[in-house]
C-alpha cells in the first residue's frame, strides 16, 4: 500500500517538474499533496493529514490557478 502510494507520489512529482504545460504541473503538485496526506494517515497522523488535504491540495492549487488565469489574460 505505502509502496504503491510512494511510486505514485514520485511519478507525479516528476511530471510536475518535467511537463511543459503549467496547468498540468500545478495539478500534479496538488496530487502529490493529496497522496502525501494519505501517507500521513498511514503513519498515524490524522491531524496532519486533514491539514494537508485541505490546504496543500485544495487552497494552494486554487491560488495557483488564479495566477495562471491572470497570466493567460495578459498574454492573449
Amino acid at each position: 500500500m505505502a509502496l504503491f502510494i510512494g511510486v505514485l507520489v514520485l511519478a507525479m512529482a516528476i511530471i510536475a517538474i518535467l511537463n511543459k504545460k503549467l496547468s498540468i504541473a500545478v495539478i500534479a503538485a496538488g496530487v502529490v499533496s493529496l497522496f502525501a496526506s494519505v501517507l500521513y494517515l498511514l503513519m498515524a497522523a490524522p491531524d496532519v493529514a486533514m491539514t494537508e488535504a485541505a490546504i496543500g491540495s485544495g487552497l494552494s492549487t486554487l491560488i495557483f490557478f488564479y495566477v495562471l488565469n491572470k497570466i493567460k489574460r495578459y498574454n492573449g
Binding site: 491531524d47 486533514m50 485544495g58 487552497l59
Partner: peptide, 17 residues
C-alpha cells in the same frame, strides 16, 4: 478528536473558496 483550529480554519476557507 483529530482536528482543531488550523484544520477547521482551512475547512471554512474552503467554503469561502
Amino acid at each position: 478528536t483529530p482536528g482543531g483550529g488550523f484544520q477547521g480554519g482551512a475547512i471554512i476557507a474552503s467554503g469561502v473558496a
